[in-house]
Design a binder for these strands. Structure first.
Lengths: 337, 337
DNA sequence: CTGAAAGCGCTTACAG
DNA sequence: CTGAAAGCGCTTACAG
């Protein structure tokens, strides 16, 4: 690839002059300007951003580190972040940490040595010493979807508490008196928020909570099937189930079907997050959607602000979830099975 | 962040020595070595990869440019590519071109100026002049999932022709005599392969093809619903439908349900690609899956080979698809609706 | 084994 | 307006 020296010599000017016409920060005579531009075109010269960055101390590049690119939560989040980045002329690159802390740590180091201007992070777990290290090195980080208690990082996340509360109130308003909670990962703080909102929703709806209303111990289709079936076999059978995620709900739906039970007639269902399959399942699944696009966009704006103003106050942004009421909780919304 | 000069002065050695102990390519006395390493730890010094790359002429970074990160085809592909990259100590970063050529072009330029060592590209469309430009600049590119006719790029893709053929033979073997094809984008070369395989499958199964067996003009749930319903209303009604993608099939399924038709009893269905929802739909969808993980992994291996051996012969790798037979085409596979 | 120096490809004051 | 020079943070021969 051509270097600035080559275009300078071909155009018979100094490299400084080439730099000046390209950057446009210093006036250059039209004659030289045209000569330089012609050579630039002729050679298809593109400045080496590595060299530029070395001087200018910024790369105009942001890294987005995701726990699991397979999770339907993330594509929209990335879209939001990407659009916000492009709007300010930053390049957003995405990395997948595969839900492994060591991988996350390696990625963080790789990003740091490549001097990205900032990082958007959907952390893998509670472990945070490696994150602290890169924060202490001075690279701005904003957390996606959850808050890391220890480090005072900016974060933007959905209001899981309120979302759970709202869905329980909805379920109760449809006449369901006993509403169960299907757990995924009880140790996950996000799920704990959801569970807390559920408990409070029960209370506000004047409904009782008891231990027999809880089931599930990890995520996944199979666990949804297993724990969902167990729940449906309880006597008395709960009228409704709020699942901690859509995967569990899909398994649950399968279990009901195999048991000859119908939803919402026999059991109403609602689930967290709203991957595409919710709308395609039978019955269509009522879901508490996170505003993923907005989370991504907002997080990027905050990151960019912090890059340009490192001392700004740490912020925590909480965005409302959206309740999509569909067949699985509402007999009215078209012919449900 | 600390620079090599800082650690050199703190350790009272020259920067060259620091570099030598860190790279390990030149022997250094234990005394100096320990002193340097101590300071490195103390300062949490990480070499600036920008500067390193400027000298060494490689960034150890690969860009993966995807047409649509929302497409369930891609997460696994990225996993495959990422694992292959890490194994050889390269960093893989992902970019989304949003199915827009201009965006793809901007990303390609951004990647080129940042001097990535190579690019994995799932191109957005037939337009290829901007791709040619970066190839001509000398950056190795391998194409994902399709072949760009004009440029002689390495590519790795699924055998769509054979996959279609196989699924038609399967459908025919289940006793279906008239098998329709539900189109997404007729201009898409990948779909054309699929359609050709379908035609040939019909022929090999001794079945007739006629124009009334074709429907659909673009992709999406709604079009699947619309064109699927049209197909199901034809007289005589086709026994089976092969959908160009799973989204179409989901819409089609919805249409059948609304028409009071059952699958596979009234109409058998198979679809291309195998997003998660295929296994969760009711009935579960028979699908021709692309070996996404393998495509990604293989493509990365080829890219890495080309990086180290630029003159190697151009290669085209075709991987077999996998037919997942499920309820929608096989009454045997559990109680189908 | 160790250090001084040149150079990777740019940008940015500073003279002229 | 234009060019020569210093410097960004490294690596790599080359002396010693």
């Amino acid at each position: 690839m051509a270097t600035i020296r080559e275009v300078a010599s071909r155009a018979s000017v100094s490299v400084g002059t080439v730099s000046n016409v390209l950057s446009g920060t210093v006036p250059v005579s039209t004659r030289l300007r045209d000569r330089v531009l012609a050579v630039v075109r002729e050679l298809d010269y593109q400045p080496n951003q590595l060299a530029q960055s070395l001087k200018s101390r910024h790369t105009k590049m942001i890294g987005m580190v995701l726990r699991d690119i397979t999770d339907p939560l993330f594509p929209q989040m990335m879209r939001g972040a990407k659009d916000a980045a492009w709007a300010r002329n930053y390049l957003l690159v995405m990395l997948d940490s595969d839900a492994k802390v060591e991988r996350e740590q390696q990625i963080l180091v790789a990003l740091r040595t490549r001097r990205v201007d900032g990082i958007l992070l959907a952390p893998t777990g509670p472990e945070e010493s490696h994150i602290r290290a890169v924060r202490d090195a001075g690279v701005p980080i904003v957390c996606l979807g959850r808050e890391l208690p220890g480090l005072g990082l900016d974060c933007v996340l959905a209001d899981n508490y309120k979302g759970a509360h709202q869905s329980v109130v909805h379920l109760a308003s449809m006449g369901n008196r006993s509403i169960a909670f299907l757990h995924g990962d009880r140790a996950d703080p996000v799920e704990q928020e959801r569970f807390a909102g559920y408990r409070r929703g029960l209370q506000d709806a004047g409904l009782a909570f008891e231990a027999s209303l809880e089931a599930g111990s990890h995520s996944g289709l199979d666990e949804g099937y297993r724990a969902g079936a167990a729940l449906a076999k309880r006597n008395p059978r709960p009228n409704a189930i709020l699942a901690a995620d859509a995967m569990l709900a899909a398994g649950l739906l399968r279990a009901l079907r195999d048991m000859g039970l119908r939803s919402p007639a026999d059991i109403a269902i609602a689930a967290f997050d709203d991957p595409f399959c919710c709308d395609v399942l039978r019955p269509r699944l009522t879901a508490v959607a996170q505003p993923s696009y907005e989370i991504g966009a907002k997080a990027m704006e905050i990151l960019l602000s912090r890059i340009h103003e490192p001392e700004r106050r740490r912020s925590k942004t909480v965005l409302d979830t959206i309740l999509h009421i569909r067949e699985s909780s509402s007999p009215l919304s078209s012919a449900a099975t």
